[in-house]
Structures are given as C-alpha cells and as structure tokens.
C-alpha cells in the first residue's frame, strides 16, 4: 500500500517552486518566474497556497523603488518535500 502524494506538492508549478527553493536559500519572484516559465498571476496564486500551508515564507520589501518579493522554504516545507520525494520513490520502485 503506497502513501498518498501530498496534493499540495503534486502540482507542476508548486513542485517546481519547491524544488527551486530547496536548492536556494532565498529566491526572488522574478527568478522563480523565469525558471518556471509561469505567468506572474499563476505564480502568485501558487505561492499563496504554499505560504498558507506554511511550506514557504514570502517577504515583501523594496529594492530601490521597485517592489521585491523574496521566497524562502520553511522547515515544514523541507519536511513535506522530503516526504513527497520518499513517497515518490515508492511509486517508482514498485
């Protein structure tokens, strides 16, 4: 019997964001948008979902006069990502 994959992570864009954040200490919104090829609107919605789940923190500030959004993965996010990858292994090694 396989564990269920975390539905929050089992979505292309959210998984892509979490994979980028697991490798980076902090990443700006523009970096995530560029690497995932997502639209700004869609990325914002998915970031909100990850933030609501406590998987990431989103910090809004300013770089000069431009608004700056910086995302970081949380400990809870790292644990969820690890669990997701371990569950994934069960599916692949079946």
């Amino acid at each position: 019997m396989f564990d269920e994959l975390d539905p929050l992570l089992h979505s292309q864009l959210r998984l892509a964001v979490m994979s980028l954040l697991i490798s980076a200490e902090a990443a700006e919104f523009t970096f995530l948008k560029e690497k995932t090829n997502a639209t700004a609107g869609n990325l914002s919605v998915q970031l909100d979902k990850l933030q609501e789940a406590g998987y990431i923190t989103v910090e809004k500030s300013f770089k000069g006069k431009k608004p700056l959004t910086t995302c970081r993965i949380t400990t809870k996010g790292i644990q969820a990502f690890e669990k997701y990858v371990n569950t994934l292994k069960q599916y692949i090694n079946k």
């Binding site: 089992h10 292309q12 998984l15 690497k35 995932t36 994934l88």
Partner: peptide
Amino acid sequence: MTAEQSLALITRMIDQA
C-alpha cells in the same frame, strides 16, 4: 503528473538553481 514526471521536474529545477 506521473511519479517519473514529478521526479524529472524536481531534478530539472534543482539543476537550474
């Protein structure tokens, strides 16, 4: 996504970073 596609996506994004 299949499990393989998920894994491929994770690998690709980690490589990008």
